[in-house]
Each structure stands twice: as structure tokens, then as C-alpha cells.
Design a protein around this nucleic acid. Structure first.
Lengths: 360, 360
DNA sequence: ATCATGCTTGAAAGCGCTTTCAGAAAGCGC
DNA sequence: GCGCTTTCTGAAAGCGCTTTCAAGCATGAT
């Protein structure tokens, strides 16, 4: 249990290999020509000693962390799994590690409660080579400050604050939303469609709502603010919101949920209230999360390439880090996925959906 | 965009505050008495300069990373979301950061293809204060080596290799499995129950299978190897496995899936084959993942406190890091959750389930 | 042979921080 | 007021690594 047991350093490796520290370092980093016999000797020593480089020392000396930071509000729902899977893929492509900063409301008692005596979180510059910022997990000010330092950063599902030209990757939210709502109206004749909005300030939700209103307008359906409720992209919040609408007897014949998570909540609330889906109320979601086709009834939704978004974000960020240019805006296409919750008989589509899903 | 723009160091802070580097460091770490006026001056300087400590330097000097490593095979499914949520909670309690190592099969072309010339991944000692190892994401040898160094480690859902007494946290898999299978037999009279096993070597699956066989034996039902298929804890693999059983006309009246993910696959395959659940085949899962109650039909399963497992694992690890003792084995209780896929009319239970879920 | 040319190599200077060490200042009893 | 302990404080020594710099040494050209 003696942790302080002599740790193996590059120095040890060099000595055992009979070369200098510098040469050993060069072998590891393949950073300069080293004669083949020395290369051999160094690797032999490394294996014999079980040498593992000390990352912090490498970072300090070389000023590169080989780590990307991911800022999240909190981990939850199927969305994150997919996003993380995509991000992981990007990481393994490029050889970076992932440091997750969850901006979750921290522990009960902060060590130091005086805000004037708190250190800024060491996100940038010193501790990662670049940052992936999800939605509103970082305030505009911080974003600007970090951008101002010329630090590589890519935004996921949010646009940059004014003045900061930070690359963004997100979905074609508006047109996707437009499509589902069009479908609800055109095919199923819905007229009173409720919208379950996401969290305040969440841009995906904003654009989806825009698409929703655009569709209403195109069909000459008046917009009724009473039909917009706070789904919060959260199952329980959405369930509460729908229950409330039901309670106050706001009439509606369809619910367009801002995401699949809130669609599940809606399905729940409707079931509890004894409303049949889709006979009495049609339901549609957004994202086409992993489980949506397994829901009761299978959810009509908009497929958003979540994994791809994660992957693209990493790629863009890596490009930026390596000194290249990144796409200012990556807009990934969304596609309508018809299943049964809207009233269609979605059988058959599901398989096709599966095949599509495979092709990242 | 000049990245090399003079970075703010502690030195700058110290100079501006009119104190020595050492004093400034002491203020930040509250590591020794410093007169109140200097403390004040240092913080003022820090805020004025927007100082952010350089983590690598701190790590190098203090030999503490304030980071926990999490080793995963790959991110997927509802299980991980819950586990990550629990881990995050533990992290924010204790102030550690999280570095995720996904042992995902790496990128196409490895830089260096000679295994003798590859560095060990810098997991331990130098780069994290402790390691959370999930299931079989690390080989026994590595585990032993790291343990041998006295490095803090906690295992999730796997037991330590012989000789290494590494704390483990996992579920009461066997008794949970025993309970569902008992239910299937006792209440629904099932006699030919298939088991969808998890990945080879996954201990959760091993114990669940043990529970399954124990129940069969207790009921005098002969064990039929033909009824055990490779569900792999994966939706698609499970669907294939079930389709195969169907194809080769192995008779069964129930499926006990090793986890909810494979239960979904089973549900899928069954639906495709036109088999009605639960009328023709009863289905039960394990885990009670977030979405299980939303499935078609709602899934009878065993609730496993996944979040709690993540949280506990972090707590144990932190205890270990701080020099304390950890529980050698944390076995979290599982409970049967009756819904409809087994043939019960599970209405009403769901709400209770929800309430339970809240109480972590 | 002689000199420029290109490779390989080691010594040494940091990277930004923590911490030991010892001196300075301050408080105390007498 | 004089030693003594108790706080504070700053100088300096690293932590383990990368990288510059200049030297060493072949090589081919002259």
C-alpha cells in the first residue's frame, strides 16, 4: 500500500537504456531521428520497467493536454447516451481523452461561500486543448472570455453569443418541426396542437417552436398561447404540464412534444387521464431517441442524428485545435419518422428506420 | 487568436498583490495561516487578472489530480445514463472531476502497430487519484498490477481477480433473478422459460443466470440449455437471438432477459414474429431502466438501483483515496417490479414505482 | 586529405505550481 | 525589557517531462 513507492520516471528508463533523458523522450514522441538500436533499447527498458508517462508533466512541459472538455448541464435521458457515443467515436478517431464537466448544481455546502473568493473553474487554456459546450451549460460572458483568449471551442445545440464566432453544430430543427406539424395537420386533420417547449433559452426548442408556428400559419391555424406548455425536455415536467392542460380543460387534439423525452411524459399523462393515443390525442416528438420506436404507441417523431452531431462536434474541434478552420455552422438534416402515435399505422417503417439508424 | 498571449500565472498574481509566490499559493489552498490583509490582496489580484490555476502544474507539484478515472467498454443504453448520473452526484459531493476512458475498439489505423512499442494507457498513478472500473473493461492482469501498486480502485459490476482485494459494488443479482423467475412460474405457470444471457464473462449476467437456474430447480423444472441464448445486453443481438430460437422452433412460454435492453430486443423480435406478449410469451427484464415502464407492454422487471451503484462506487473510492477503508463488497438490493409484460395487469404499480425511483 | 552538410545526441533550461526551510515579526511570561 | 515560543513570510528546491542549443560524428563533395 505504499503509494510513494519509487515511481518509474523517464529518467529511470533512460538510465536503464543507457541513453539520455532527451533521447528517451524523443523515442516516446517520435519527435526526432533516433538511431534504431537506441530506439530498441529504450522500448525494452520501457517494457521492463512498466513505465507510464506522467501526463501532468507532459502537459506542463509540452503545453498540450490531449484532452477535450465537455460541458454539460446534467446527464440524463437517451439523448446524452447517443451524443456521448458520437463523441466517443470522434475521440477514438483523434486520440483525445474526455474530461466531463457537469455544471450540475454542486454539493450542499461549498467549501468557500464567498463568491469573491472562488476560483474560476479551470476549464480552458491550461487543462484541455479545446471545449465542447452543450446548450446553455456556460454563460455568454464566460463563452466570450474564453473565445477572446482564442481558445478552441465548439458549441453544441446553441448559437454563439453576439460577437463571438464560435463554430456550432446542431440540427435542422425548424424544418423538422415544420414537417411533423404539417403531417399532423395535413394527414390527421389536427387543428388544436399543443407544443411542449423545452427549457427556457434552449435553442433547439426555440427553433422547433418556430417550425411549429410556421406550420400553423401556413395552414391558417391561429396560434393559441394556451397551447404552449413547459415540457422542459423532461419526462416528469412534461407529464405535469399535460396533466395541467387537461385539468384546466384546454382543448387539444394533438401534442407536439419538443423532444422525445417530453413526449414520453405526455404519453404518460394522457394514459393516466384515460385519453387514448392516437384516437383522442395524436402525439409526436423530436429526436427519435433509441427507445421511441418501442413506446406505447410507437412514437411518431423527427429523427435527429444525435450521434453524428457529437462526432461532428469533435471533428470540428480537433480541426480547430490543429490550427485549421472549422465550419461556422454545421446543420444536420432531420427526417420525419412516421410511427403510430400520430394515428398512422406505422408498421413496416420501423424496420426501415433501423436500417437507416445503422448508417451513421 | 494569439494563443501564446501571456498567460496569467500565480507569479503575476503574487506580484500584483505584493506578496511572494509562496504566499499566493497558500491563499489559494488555504494551506497555512496568512494574514487577513494579504489574503484580501491576493484575492483582489486573482479577480482582477482573471487568474485560473494551471491544473497540470498543480498536479505535478502536489501529486494530486482531483480526478477520478472511469473505465468503460462503450457508452450505450439507458443503463449508462443512470450510472453516470449517480457518478456525477458522487463527484459533485466530493469535488472530483471525471476522466472517461472508453476502451472502445480504437480508430482504424493505430499510430503504432507494434504492441511492443506501445505505451500503457496512463490510467493510474500519475493521472487520476483513483479508478472506477466497470465490468470487464480492464483485464485481470492490469487490475492486479494497478492494485499491486496500491492504487485506489473500485470495481463496478464485477468481482476482483483472485488475490486482489478490490472493493466492489454491484447488485443483488441472484435473488432478483430468482424473484422474477419465481413469479413467472408461480403466478403465470410458465414452464419453458428462456434466458437471454449477457456478454460472456459479465458477472451481473452470471449471477442472474444462477438465480434463474435456482428458481427452475426449486420448482422442479429441468434446465434446458437450448433455452439459453446470447442476448449480449444488447437490443439487436437479443432480437436476433430470439428470432433464431423462434426459427428453430424451440418452444418457450416466457423469456427472462438478462437486462432491459435485451428485453426490448426480445419484445421486438416477438412482435415481428407476430407473437403476442404476454398472451403467448411472457417477458421479463432486469434493471428497470428509465424507459421500461413505457414499453409495449410495460415491462415486468427487476429494479436495480443503478444510480445508487454509481454514487456508492464514487463514495467508496473517495474514502479509499482519503486513506480510509472501503467496504469490500457493496451489494445493493433489487426489487421485483410487476408490470404487464409478464401477464399481470400492472396498472397502478407504475406510479408507486415512480415515487420509489425518486428516493435515491 | 579538407571542409561543409546533415544526423544523432546530451546538457540544461524551463513549464507553473507546492512545499520545505529558515528567517523575520509578533506575542508572551517574567 | 529579555529570552522564548508561535505566526507569518519569502527564497529556493523540486515535481517529470519537452525542447532548444550546441557539440559530436559521419558522410560526401572538393
Amino acid at each position: 500500500m505504499n503509494r510513494t513507492h519509487t515511481r518509474v520516471t523517464l529518467d529511470d528508463v533512460a538510465r536503464r537504456a543507457g541513453v539520455s533523458l532527451a533521447t528517451a523522450s524523443r523515442v516516446i514522441n517520435q519527435s526526432a531521428g533516433v538511431s534504431e538500436d537506441k530506439v530498441e533499447r529504450v522500448w525494452t527498458a520501457i517494457n521492463a520497467l512498466n513505465y507510464v508517462p506522467h501526463t501532468a508533466a507532459q502537459v506542463l512541459a509540452a503545453n498540450e493536454t490531449h484532452t477535450l472538455g465537455l460541458l454539460l448541464p446534467a446527464v440524463s435521458g437517451g439523448f446524452f447516451v447517443s451524443m456521448l457515443a458520437g463523441i466517443q467515436q470522434g475521440l477514438s478517431e483523434s486520440g483525445y481523452d474526455l474530461l466531463i464537466y457537469s455544471s450540475q448544481p454542486a454539493a450542499p455546502a461549498q467549501r468557500n461561500d464567498d463568491p469573491r473568493r472562488r476560483l474560476r473553474r479551470p476549464l480552458d487554456q491550461h487543462n484541455t486543448d479545446g471545449l465542447l459546450v452543450f446548450a446553455d451549460s456556460l454563460e455568454d460572458d464566460e463563452l466570450r472570455r474564453i473565445y477572446g483568449n482564442g481558445f478552441p471551442m465548439v458549441l453544441l445545440h446553441r448559437s454563439p453569443p453576439a460577437g463571438a464566432e464560435i463554430p456550432t453544430v446542431t440540427f435542422e430543427n425548424k424544418s423538422g418541426a415544420r414537417q411533423v406539424v404539417d403531417h399532423l395537420v395535413d394527414v390527421h386533420g389536427c387543428q388544436r396542437i399543443a407544443y411542449l417547449a423545452g427549457p427556457e433559452g434552449h435553442e433547439d426548442s426555440y427553433w422547433r417552436q418556430r417550425g411549429y408556428r410556421e406550420s400553423l400559419q401556413a395552414h391558417g391555424i391561429p396560434f393559441d398561447p394556451l397551447l404552449v406548455a413547459a415540457g422542459e425536455f423532461d419526462r416528469e415536467a412534461a407529464a405535469r404540464a399535460v396533466a395541467e392542460m387537461l385539468a384546466r380543460e384546454t382543448a387539444f387534439d394533438a401534442i407536439f412534444a419538443g423532444d422525445d423525452e417530453s413526449a414520453m411524459g405526455a404519453l404518460d399523462a394522457l394514459a393516466h387521464a384515460g385519453k387514448r393515443v392516437p384516437q383522442e390525442v395524436a402525439v409526436a416528438g423530436f429526436d427519435d431517441v433509441d427507445v421511441s420506436r418501442h413506446l406505447r404507441p410507437p412514437l411518431t417523431t423527427v429523427r435527429a442524428p444525435i450521434e453524428k452531431a457529437g462526432l461532428q462536434a469533435v471533428r470540428q474541434l480537433v480541426q480547430l485545435i490543429r490550427g485549421g478552420q472549422a465550419e461556422p455552422l454545421t446543420l444536420l438534416p432531420t427526417t420525419l419518422v412516421i410511427r403510430r402515435s400520430c394515428g398512422c399505422n406505422g408498421a413496416g417503417h420501423e424496420l426501415a428506420g433501423d436500417l437507416e439508424r445503422r448508417a451513421l
